[in-house]
Computed example of a mutant assay.
Amino acid sequence: MLSSSALAEAPICVVDDRGRDVCMVKPAQRIAALSPGATELIYAAGAGDKVVAVVSFSDYPEEAKEVTSVGSHTRIDLERLMSLQPDLVLAWGTGNPSEQIALIERLGLTVYYVEPHEFESIARNVENMGILAGTQGQANTEALRFRQGIQALQARYEAAPAIDVFYQIWQEPLMTMNGEHYMSKVVSLCGGVNVFADSPRLIPRLNQEAVLLKNPEAILAGGMGERNAKWLSAWRAFPGLLATQRDNLFFVPPSLIQRPTTRLLEGAEILCQALETARGRR
């Protein structure tokens, strides 16, 4: 049997979203979150009081707005970051500059890559962050809440009649997502069919004609801000579009659906209800 001193010295290890073993000799005390999504996840894991650095647009929860910003996710102020002496850096694999993250690692900081593409990987990230920060109790509770909520939606809508859906991520240029994206999996969860699921690009750029040819039954969009639904107005100019004919133009607050965090459950509930409304208009 290991002695208590040996147990205390055993490293804390998890596997990040790049399949890398990330180990620490003791729970993190000073954490840098280099994307708004990573910020939400570490707070969800119960370690918000250990966050010493965030990047721009890290606006949830409210307390995150008071944490020191070290630039944007696309350009990190390394001097400021290093001055805060983080012992754990939560990096966004496809969002942060790879050369800056590589330099952070060469400088000896522990880096955990956050890049969830599945519901389960969102829950697992919360659990992993709880392990690394020593807040497993709250992290495991939140991960369980998220898993159970997703399972409940799956059970509720698995037999729902399918609806062809166009989800608009951005306006200019017009952008959506393919079937590999986690937001497309939310559409599927609710009984929707992403009309651009077979696109070869994760985030395809489109023109209006491509959407009109697909003639989706419902269009969902975020927008610039949590209450700004003006992106949907452009589709009202096409009365021949099935979604317009049936008034199936639905706004989803972008922070609830366009960040892979446990708040995605709230966004999924809104999206599912929108598609249920569309079914009722047939």
Results as ranks from 00 to 15, higher is better:
Glu209Lys: 13
Ala278Ile: 01
Leu132Gly: 00
Leu153Val: 05
Gly222Leu: 12
Val55Pro: 01
Pro27Cys: 02
Ser56Pro: 02
Met24Leu: 15
Met1Lys: 13
Arg147Tyr: 11
Ile76Cys: 08
Thr135Trp: 06
Arg75Pro: 01
Val67Glu: 06
Glu158Cys: 14
Thr176Ile: 02
Val51Asn: 03
Phe250Gly: 04
Glu63Gly: 12
Ile270Arg: 10
Thr68Cys: 01
Gly267His: 05
Ala143Asn: 02
Thr135Glu: 13
Glu209Ile: 08
Ser35Lys: 05
Thr262Asp: 07
Gly280His: 09
Ala237Asp: 14
Ile122Tyr: 03
Ile131Ser: 05
Asp198Thr: 14
Pro86Ser: 09
Thr74Tyr: 10
Gln273Glu: 15
Thr261Cys: 02
Gln85Met: 02
Asn228Trp: 08
Leu264Tyr: 05
Asn178Gly: 11
Gln273Leu: 12
Pro254Phe: 01
Ala229Phe: 05
Leu213Gly: 02
Glu63Ala: 15
Glu172Cys: 02
Arg106Thr: 11
Val54Gly: 06
Glu62Ile: 07
Ser4Ile: 12
Ala47Ile: 08
Leu132Ser: 00
Ser69Met: 09
Ile12Gln: 00
Gln154Met: 03
Gly130His: 05
Gly223Ile: 12
Ile122Thr: 08
Tyr113Lys: 02
Phe166Asn: 05
Arg80Gly: 09
Ala44Pro: 03
Glu127His: 11
Thr244His: 06
Glu79Ile: 12
Arg281Tyr: 09
Ala160Phe: 07
